[in-house]
């Protein structure tokens, strides 16, 4: 066993850190998209619009039932062959799209469960004062469901950040892609991948800390 090249590792840190904005940017963009799509699908699953319900169920089933990597390849390498307009799609866009669709399927189920977890009496009270279904959902039910779903959704965000590393298979130079290139030049694979692993870990730890703060904040408002 040889000794670790610590100087190389330290030198690599700022290089990889330079790609953190791209990694977080992709995750954030996908999170926003996934949240919006998941909320719509969750509401649909609760209200059950005929025909649309089948489509949403199929969507959720497919994106939960197949590997993310397969989905990314399907979007980036496959779809442009069928739909020529997509031929110019770049790796970053494809990765964001793939992450959005993949995670929206999971998040829709959490949000749906959270909506169904809101006490029936809240619906009744909203209806009784004359609110429409949409008003009841938007002003009374969803805010309460959001509180319940928030910790889980942050978990998905953390998972999403880690999953952005798959974008490197689409030729995107993000944290993982940059590391791969560095390692290929230096042949110090262990050092390089250890550094990137620790950096992902640090990002996740920071988010976990924020998540605990958020959870505390959310439960405080409803407690005595």
């Amino acid at each position: 066993m040889r000794a670790l090249d610590l100087d190389y590792m330290l030198g690599l840190v700022p290089v990889i850190l330079g790609y953190v904005p791209l990694t977080l940017g992709m995750a954030l963009a996908a999170m926003v998209g996934a949240l919006a799509l998941a909320s719509l699908m969750a509401v649909e699953r609760v209200v059950r619009v005929p025909v649309l319900d089948g489509v949403v169920q199929l969507f959720i089933s497919f994106f939960r039932g197949t590997p993310l990597l397969v989905q990314l390849f399907l979007f980036y390498y496959g779809l442009p062959q069928i739909i020529p307009v997509l031929a110019g799609i770049n790796g970053v866009t494809a990765a964001i799209l793939g992450l959005t669709l993949h995670f929206s399927a999971y998040m829709a189920e959490s949000i749906r469960a959270a909506i169904l977890g809101v006490d029936r009496s809240q619906w009744e009270a909203a209806q009784a004062v004359g609110m429409t279904q949409t008003q009841s959902m938007r002003r009374i039910i969803l805010p309460q469901a959001a509180r319940v779903a928030a910790p889980t959704l942050v978990n998905y965000f953390i998972d999403m950040i880690k999953s952005t590393s798959l974008a490197f298979t689409l030729g995107v130079t993000e944290m993982m892609g940059a590391t791969q290139k560095e390692a290929a030049g230096s042949f110090l694979y262990f050092e390089a991948f250890l550094v990137v692993a620790v950096l992902y870990w640090a990002i996740v730890e920071i988010l976990s800390f924020l998540q605990k703060r958020l959870e505390f904040h959310l439960t405080k408002a409803l407690a005595r």
């Binding site: 006490d119 009496s121 809240q122 009744e124 009270a125 909203a126 009784a128 009374i140 805010p143 309460q144 509180r147 409803l222």
Partner: peptide, 9 residues
């Protein structure tokens, strides 16, 4: 309502 059913949020 019997159980008040105030909006919790």
């Amino acid at each position: 309502f019997q159980n008040y059913s105030l909006f919790a949020n």
